[in-house]
Simulated scan of single mutants.
Amino acid sequence: MPSMRIRLAAAVAAVALPLTLTACGGGDSGGSAASGDKENITVGIKFDQPGLGIKNSDGTYSGFDVDVATYVAEQLGYAPDKIEWKEAVSAQRENLIDNDQVDYVVATYSITDERKKRVDFAGPYLVTGQSLLVQASNNDITSKDSLGGKILCSVKGSTPAQKIKDEFPTVQLQEYPNYSACVEALKTGKVAAVTTDEVILAGYAAQSPGAFKLVGGTFSTENYGIGLKKGDTELQTKINDALKKMESDGAWTAAFEKNLGPAGIKTPEPPAIG
C-alpha cells in the first residue's frame, strides 16, 4: 500500500498535467510577436469593409489594412501563411488586445487619448476624416450642417459615433454592430445617412456603383494606428520601423492605389510615423 507521501505526489502530478496542457493550447509555441519566435501571429482586422479589410467569398482577405498588416508581419518574421486573421469589430478591439486574443490590430483604429489608456499604438499609418454617405438621389443632406433631425447610422464603439453624440445632439443616431449593416439600412431607407471615415464610406460606394454618394467633405481628422498591448514598447518600435520601411520602399503607395484608388480617393502622402 503506497505511503501518504507517494499518494500526494501522484495527486499533484495528475492535477498539474492538464494545467500544463491547457497552458500550451492553441498550437502556438509561445514566445512573443516582437521576437519572431511564435509559430503563428494573430492579427485583428475588419471583415466587412471593402477596400480596407474584407473577408472574401473564397475565404481570403483583402484591403489596405490587410496589406499593411501583412507587410508588418513579414518584417516581424512571419510569412503570410503564418498569419491568423481574427475579426475585430469596433467595440471589441481593446478587449481583443487586453485578453491576448491578438498580437496587434489593424482595423481602421483611430488613435485617441481615451483608447491609449488601455492600449498602445504604432503609427499612424493613414490619416483620414469623418464624412457622410447618402443615397445617390438624396439632396437633403449636403454637409454636417444639414444633419439636424435626421436619422444617422454609425457603429457602436466607434470614434464617429461618439463625435455625433458629442457635437450633433439633434441627430437621431442609430448604432449598429458593423458598417455593412448601416449601409444596408441606408439602402432600404431606414436611415438617411451613414457616417464614418471617408475611406470606409468610399469603399462601400465603390462596391455599389450609382447607389450612393459621399457628401460634405471631411469634418474631423482621424489618425489610424496599429493597436497593441499596453507597455509592449519592443513590438511598438518594431511595427513603427516596419511602417517606415513600407512607406520608403513604395509598398505603402502601391497598397493604397490598389485598394482605395478604385473608390476615387486621391493617393495622399504617407503620414509621419511616431
Rank of each mutant, 00 (worst) to 15 (best):
N56G: 09
N56S: 09
G59W: 07
T60I: 04
T60V: 01
Y61P: 05
G63W: 00
F64L: 05
D65W: 01
V66I: 11
D67G: 02
D67Q: 14
D67F: 03
A69S: 04
A69W: 00
A69Q: 01
T70I: 04
Y71F: 09
V72E: 01
V72S: 00
A73W: 02
E74H: 06
Q75S: 09
L76V: 11
G77R: 06
G77K: 10
Y78K: 07
Y78A: 10
A79F: 12
P80T: 12
D81F: 14
D81E: 15
E84D: 15
E84V: 15
W85L: 05
K86M: 14
K86L: 14
A88E: 06
V89A: 15
V89N: 11
S90D: 13
A91H: 03
A91T: 14
A91C: 08
Q92F: 11
Q92L: 12
R93D: 01
R93K: 14
R93M: 14
E94S: 10
E94D: 13
E94K: 12
N95C: 11
L96W: 00
I97P: 00
I97V: 15
D98M: 15
N99Q: 15
Q101R: 14
Y104L: 08
Y104H: 11
V105A: 01
V106H: 02
V106N: 02
A107E: 00
A107T: 02
A107S: 13
S110H: 03
I111R: 01
D113I: 00
E114T: 11
R115K: 13
R115D: 08
R115Y: 06
K116Y: 06
K116P: 03
D120F: 06
D120V: 10
F121W: 04
A122K: 03
A122H: 07
G123M: 03
G123E: 03
P124M: 06
P124K: 09
Y125R: 01
Y125G: 04
L126K: 04
L126H: 07
L126M: 09
L126S: 06
V127W: 00
V127C: 07
V127H: 02
T128V: 07
T128A: 08
L133V: 12
L133W: 09
V134L: 03
V134T: 11
Q135K: 15
A136H: 12
S137W: 11
S137A: 15
S137N: 15
N138V: 10
N138G: 07
N139G: 14
N139Y: 12
N139A: 12
N139L: 11
D140Q: 14
I141N: 08
I141V: 14
S143Q: 08
K144W: 05
D145R: 10
S146C: 02
L147K: 05
G148E: 12
G149H: 09
L152Y: 03
C153S: 06
S154V: 01
V155G: 01
K156E: 13
G157N: 08
G157I: 00
G157E: 00
T159V: 13
T159Y: 08
